Amino acid sequence: MASEIVKAGGARPLTVWYNTRCPVCDAGIRHQRNRLVEAVKAGRIEFLDINLEPDALVRFGASLDDIRRRLHATDEEGRLLVGADVALAIWRRTPGQAWIAGLLGAPGIHTLTCFAYDRFADLLFAWNKRHGRW
């Protein structure tokens, strides 16, 4: 399984699972992947389609619909990140965008960031379901 890859020296990449069938999700990840070309090439971050490995995060209790609803990732220590925390982790690694993670992940703001992300994700998930993007 791709998310189990461990590089020489024991380091795992940040592995981001997302729904390629969602045009908004796919475009957003494609944009970030293009900004992170060097990190992707170096194996520090990877972006994977959950539709190709629907059971990839079952060990964390995450269903396919959970991952289609919100971004999920495993960090370098193998911990699960969900929703806004995945976006923050990606921005921290993206040249010129670490400030976004610093701002939206700041104490007091993080709760608002997660709330806003979750509401947007709920709307996007419902929209994708209505349009049969499964």
Rank of each mutant, 00 (worst) to 15 (best):
R119F: 01
L103Q: 07
E77T: 09
R79F: 07
P107L: 00
A42P: 04
A98C: 08
C114Y: 03
L88G: 10
G61K: 13
H131F: 15
T111Y: 01
A11K: 12
V40P: 08
A27D: 08
D122M: 06
D75P: 00
R79W: 05
F125Q: 09
L124E: 12
N19P: 01
C22P: 05
H72W: 13
Y18V: 10
T94V: 02
A8T: 02
H72R: 12
V6G: 00
E4C: 03
W134P: 05
I90F: 13
H72Q: 12
I67Q: 10
D65S: 10
W99M: 02
R92A: 03
V16G: 03
V24C: 09
A62P: 04
I45L: 06
I5M: 03
D122Y: 00
I5T: 13
A116N: 07
G28L: 14
L123S: 12
W127C: 05
V6T: 04
R30Y: 02
I67K: 06
I29N: 07
P13C: 08
I5W: 07
R119H: 08
P13Y: 04
A126V: 02
A121I: 03
H131W: 15
A89G: 11
G105A: 09
I45M: 11
H110K: 11
R93A: 04
A126H: 05
H110C: 02
H31P: 00
D55R: 13
A8H: 05
Y117V: 01
G78S: 07
G43Q: 06
C22S: 10
A87R: 03
R93L: 13
V40H: 05
G132Q: 15
K41L: 02
E77L: 05
A84S: 14
Y117C: 01
I50F: 09
I45Y: 11
I109F: 02
E4K: 06
L64K: 12
L71P: 02
I100A: 13
V6D: 08
R12L: 10
D122E: 06
F115S: 06
G108W: 10
N51A: 09
G43V: 14
R30F: 10
R59D: 13
R69L: 12
N19F: 01
D55L: 07
D65Q: 11
R44I: 13
A73C: 12
L88V: 03
E76G: 08
A121R: 00
I45C: 08
L48T: 08
D75E: 01
E38C: 01
K41Q: 14
N128F: 13
I29S: 10
D26Q: 11
W91D: 05
H131R: 15
R68V: 03
L88E: 11
V40S: 09
